[in-house]
Amino acid sequence: MNVPTDLRYAKTHEWIRSEGDTITVGITDHAQAELTDIVYAEPPKVGAEVKAGATAAVVESVKAASDIYSPLSGSVTEVNAELASNPALLNTDPFGQGWIYRMKASDVAEIDSLLTPEAYSAQIGQ
């Protein structure tokens, strides 16, 4: 499984990419492989307040709906509109075109509590 080295990870299989104070959030390659064919994504609304560890989005495979937890607290600034018409991007490009939402973090210190790529790789057993 791909675990890019420039990202940080939540134990619940989300990733974040920091660019200044803008944070992009998605799910990992491991998560998409476990979920299998993703057929629907429900991102948060722009402007929504999200809390670290609380449900921010839902993705659904044919078999099951899965909550996506926000890795950080803050407010949602942008959502990936492409996912509405092409939710399979979450499977095919989870770290790129399959991103779910962007947010402004209210406390960037929370990033320190997220897993490093090495720690996340260890968690998923590789």
Partner: peptide, 20 residues
């Protein structure tokens, strides 16, 4: 196969993917 419990049985829920 990915195996799951169904009606008291351990059964395959999918192999390559449900859509496929």
């Amino acid at each position: 196969a990915r195996m799951v419990e169904f009606g008291g049985w351990l059964m395959p829920v999918q192999y390559t993917g449900i859509m496929d």
